[in-house]
């Protein structure tokens, strides 16, 4: 048993893969609690998809991939923030239009290259191929996101529960929303390295939603979500190693399984 657990750790790609999975899981799960509670799940998904053209353009020009993704992500975050302040169109409709358009642009650009193969890691992630500079980026994002969430905890909480009162005491509710959107863009870009564009929103939503079934308190909810995500990351990687299956899909499915177990547990408790 011990051998079975230790064997994969002899490989550098598994070591850095596990570290990346833990860091990404931590970042996405804690931020994901706000995503779930503020009903921004759709925004998380949209951000992940709009990042694709940024990635592809960076790839085609041999620029830094994370830089391209980050630029596209932050631009989308600001655009969504701006859209949500106006009332000409429903926010989810506007986001739906922008994100499908951007995703289509990404795919169109991808199809200009003869082989699609280079892009599968963008769509589905390649956590075992994570380089040390990508790991550094993921670590940096984790520190930035978690630090800012801790520093602005009471304000983010208040603007979520009662934005009107927050505005009365002088808080700029819009600015905090922009902050949250930018952190979301950062987290999404780092999660894309791990599980790819298509599955990123699962890391944001599923662990946080699972935790919200198990506790009614904000800080424990964040802790629990982080625990679920980290555990899923590690278990998913082992499954991927021994079963030779896609690591991103394995991680997400373990998260989904956790959600299923929590759902049944809550249902059984309420009986």
């Amino acid at each position: 048993m011990t051998n079975w657990l230790l064997e994969p750790l002899h490989y550098t790609f598994m070591q850095s893969g596990l570290l990346a999975a833990v860091l990404v899981g931590l970042t996405c799960a804690v931020l994901g609690v706000y995503v779930v509670l503020r009903r921004m799940a759709f925004i998380g998904d949209a951000l992940a998809h709009t990042v694709l053209p940024g990635l592809v353009i960076a790839y085609l020009n041999s620029w830094n991939l994370a830089g391209g993704a980050l630029t596209a992500g932050l631009a989308t975050a600001l655009l969504i923030g701006w859209l949500s302040e106006r009332r000409e169109m429903r926010e989810d409709t506007a986001i739906g239009i922008v994100f499908t358009g951007m995703f289509a642009l990404g795919i169109l650009l991808m199809s200009t290259v003869r082989s699609f193969r280079d892009f599968t890691h963008m769509l589905f992630g390649n956590i075992l191929g994570v380089t040390s500079s990508e790991l550094l980026f993921i670590g940096g994002v984790a520190i930035i996101v978690l630090t800012l969430l801790a520093l602005f905890h009471k304000e983010l909480e208040l603007t979520s529960v009662d934005p009107g009162y927050a505005a009365v005491i002088g808080l700029r509710v819009h600015w905090l929303r922009y902050l949250l959107l930018c952190l979301l863009a950062l987290a999404v870009v780092s999660a894309i390295q791990a599980v790819g564009v298509v599955l990123t929103s699962a890391l944001l939503v599923t662990p946080a939603a699972t935790a919200s079934l198990l506790t009614q308190r904000l800080t424990p909810m964040m802790g629990l979500a982080a625990l679920i995500a980290v555990l899923s990351g590690v278990v998913g990687l082992y499954i991927s190693y021994y079963g030779s299956v896609s690591s991103g899909a394995a991680i997400v499915l373990v998260c989904t399984l956790c959600f299923g177990v929590a759902w049944v547990a809550r249902w059984a408790r309420s009986k």
């Binding site: 009471k154 009162y165 009365v168």
Partner: peptide
């Protein structure tokens, strides 16, 4: 101090009474 109408608060947000009063 301003007391809004109740409908302007997201009552489903996880928060205790003590913490909301504390804001």
């Amino acid at each position: 101090a301003y007391l809004a109408q109740r409908s302007e608060v997201d009552w489903r947000f996880p928060m205790t009474v003590r913490r909301l009063v504390g804001t």
